[in-house]
């Protein structure tokens, strides 16, 4: 989640803050520089295995991982597993986001609801979510139901907390502007509260999605016949470490892409933000 985001945020600071820096050592050079360590390690391992100095069976060299990845993709296996895993995350993310947003908004808005529900929810949050798995399997069966419930629970809490905090911290002074212009309750939500909580909401969604990916792995490790998590277990049981690494790489790629989608989709709505990095660019 953070590699690209970090390089994007750091870059203007470096360029504007250090005018004495040599021209050409900009964004691309920095990206290349950051790749030095992983590339050297990968190439080194590849060479060691090729020269027969190391046995690559448990830690497969990059060429083997790439070949496994390509083979899985060519047979359509990879796409099928990705599709299954992604649909589980999508369903769980949707359920967790909707319930988290609604309950978070109500708890943030009404102190009574907050006093009533928040202690219970905070107590539930303290339970490591994986501990629910046996119960969910008893309740919702071994198939999709229990998996999607587990993912929903994982997504729910960061979204709930983020939305509640955001609503509670909306600037009273801006709400007062809405009152001075006689906004109806609906208009107040639409024209003041929603835009005001949006930046925090996007962050809540991104951490919710991150947890969604985490929990889909947990759910699939605990029993699945398809999905990237199944590829992990399958690779372990059949002694195919390259398949495990290929599945991990697939997780990293689609996790990053899904995070990007949220960032890109909401960026036009957040252009107004008076952010630290935006300010630096303006200077």
């Amino acid at each position: 989640m953070s590699l690209v985001q970090m390089s994007v945020r750091d870059e203007p600071v470096a360029v504007t803050e250090k005018p004495g820096r040599k021209p050409g050592f900009g964004r691309h050079s920095r990206l290349v520089f950051g790749l030095v360590v992983p590339v050297v390690l990968a190439l080194g391992w590849e060479i060691l295995v090729r020269l027969g100095l190391a046995n690559g069976r448990l830690v497969p060299p990059p060429s083997v991982i790439f070949a496994t990845f390509a083979e899985l993709a060519r047979s359509g296996e990879l796409q099928r597993h990705i599709l299954v895993t992604t649909s589980r995350v999508a369903a769980g993310f949707a359920i967790g986001t909707i319930t988290g947003t609604l309950l978070g908004a109500i708890s943030g808005y009404s102190a009574l609801t907050r006093r009533l529900f928040d202690p219970t929810l905070q107590a539930l949050r303290a339970i490591p979510s994986i501990a629910w798995v046996p119960l969910f399997i008893l309740w919702f069966g071994i198939f999709e139901g229990s998996k999607i419930t587990l993912i929903s629970v994982g997504v729910f809490f960061p979204v709930y907390l983020g939305v509640m905090g955001a609503v509670m911290s909306v600037d009273r002074k801006l709400v007062e502007v809405g009152r001075a212009f006689r906004l109806s309750p609906v208009a107040m939500v639409r024209r003041i509260l929603l835009p005001a909580v949006l930046p925090a909401y996007v962050i809540a969604l991104r951490s919710g999605l991150g947890l969604g990916w985490m929990f889909v792995v947990a759910a699939e490790l605990l029993g699945a016949s398809e999905g990237l998590g199944f590829l992990l277990v399958d690779g372990q049981q059949l002694g195919k470490p390259a398949q495990i690494v290929a599945a991990i790489v697939a997780f990293a790629i689609i996790g990053k892409i899904s995070d990007w989608i949220i960032v890109l989709a909401t960026a036009p709505l957040l252009r107004w933000e008076d952010r630290f990095s935006a300010e630096r660019v303006a200077d």
Binding site: E176, V177, D274
Partner: peptide, 9 residues
């Protein structure tokens, strides 16, 4: 008001 209180969005 004392502050402009413009809506930043």
């Amino acid at each position: 008001f004392q502050e402009p209180r413009l809506l930043p969005w």
